[in-house]
């Protein structure tokens, strides 16, 4: 049986943020955006762990930028969502919307 890779809520949030940030999707802005949206402190280690899992599943790709002095000579690692990742996000959205619409208590509440 070919099981589709499951996305956790944190992985889904991270993928949406990477898509939103486009060419500026590296650790700091990704973590800041997640913090802003969830109102919780985010650990960069967790963000990287989620992104590495997503990369293993083939949903994101990463590449290293140039090292900069402000970062102590360390390079930025930029992420972007693959076509396969886009398909999985759309599929997850479709499933969540369908489930949302079938819960009468949530009628009128925008997902």
């Amino acid at each position: 049986m070919n099981t589709p890779s499951h996305l956790s809520d944190f992985e889904l949030i991270t993928m949406l943020v990477v898509m939103r940030l486009e060419d500026n999707a590296y650790g700091v802005p990704i973590a800041l955006e997640i913090e802003e949206q969830t109102k919780r402190e985010v650990k960069l280690g967790s963000v990287y762990a989620a992104l590495e899992r997503l990369e293993e599943k083939g949903f994101v790709l990463s590449e290293l930028g140039e090292p900069t002095r402000e970062r102590g000579g360390r390079a930025k690692r930029y992420f972007h969502v693959t076509k396969q990742g886009m398909r999985r996000v759309r599929e997850t959205r479709r499933i969540l919307l369908r489930l949302w619409q079938r819960v009468p208590k949530l009628e009128g509440v925008r997902p």
């Binding site: 590296y26 650790g27 990287y48 900069t68 402000e70 102590g72 360390r74 390079a75």
Partner: peptide, 10 residues
């Protein structure tokens, strides 16, 4: 290295 750079930047 990228993680350490992100933390320094933060």
């Amino acid at each position: 290295a990228p993680l350490a750079g992100d933390l320094i930047e933060g």
